[in-house]
Design a protein around this nucleic acid. Structure first.
Length: 142
DNA sequence: GCCAACGTTGGC
DNA sequence: GCCAACGTTGGC
């Protein structure tokens, strides 16, 4: 997985939104309590680009962030050494949010992990998928 | 509010 | 080590 440069993270905007990330300038992406998602956090490298997805409310990818600090112990996990977080900073908002429904309608995105494994909160995104999503973000919704 | 998908837990 | 029960996530 050393060639993964692109990721997607989910957040419930009621808990922590893209707008909050922009306001704060950076954030510790903590609170992940799933081993697979944790492994993905650990694989992130400085400078990797991260799509930010709003679950529940919106169900859309709203912006791009960048990894500014690689995995370190998640303070929100107390003394539990299993969990880590990374620091993310906003890069830019998508011109048009890319909604889940739209992505589901595109066959080339059917093996995107967001579609295939709905509950995973941190996942790799292939370069192809990443660029496809950026293209969709340039295209106004019908 | 419902439920499918998935992860975790605990009894055996 | 298996699997039923339970909890959580997240789309609908």
């Amino acid at each position: 997985m050393e060639n993964d440069r692109y990721w997607l993270v989910k957040t419930e905007p009621e808990a922590f939104s893209w707008q909050q990330l922009v306001k704060d300038g950076k954030t510790a992406w903590d609170g992940v309590r799933n081993y697979l998602a944790r492994n993905h956090l650990q694989a992130m490298q400085q400078g990797d680009l991260v799509l930010v997805y709003h679950s529940n409310t919106g169900k859309e990818i709203v912006g791009i962030a960048r990894v500014i600090r690689t995995a370190y112990p998640d303070a929100s996990a107390g003394d539990d050494p299993r969990w880590v977080c990374v620091d993310l900073a906003p890069v830019c908002a998508l011109k048009q949010p890319v909604i889940l429904k739209q992505m589901k309608e595109i066959p080339a995105l059917h093996d995107l992990m967001l579609i295939r494994q709905g509950r995973l909160s941190v996942m790799p995104v292939s370069e192809l998928h990443f660029h496809l999503i950026l293209q969709l973000a340039e295209t106004p919704h019908p």
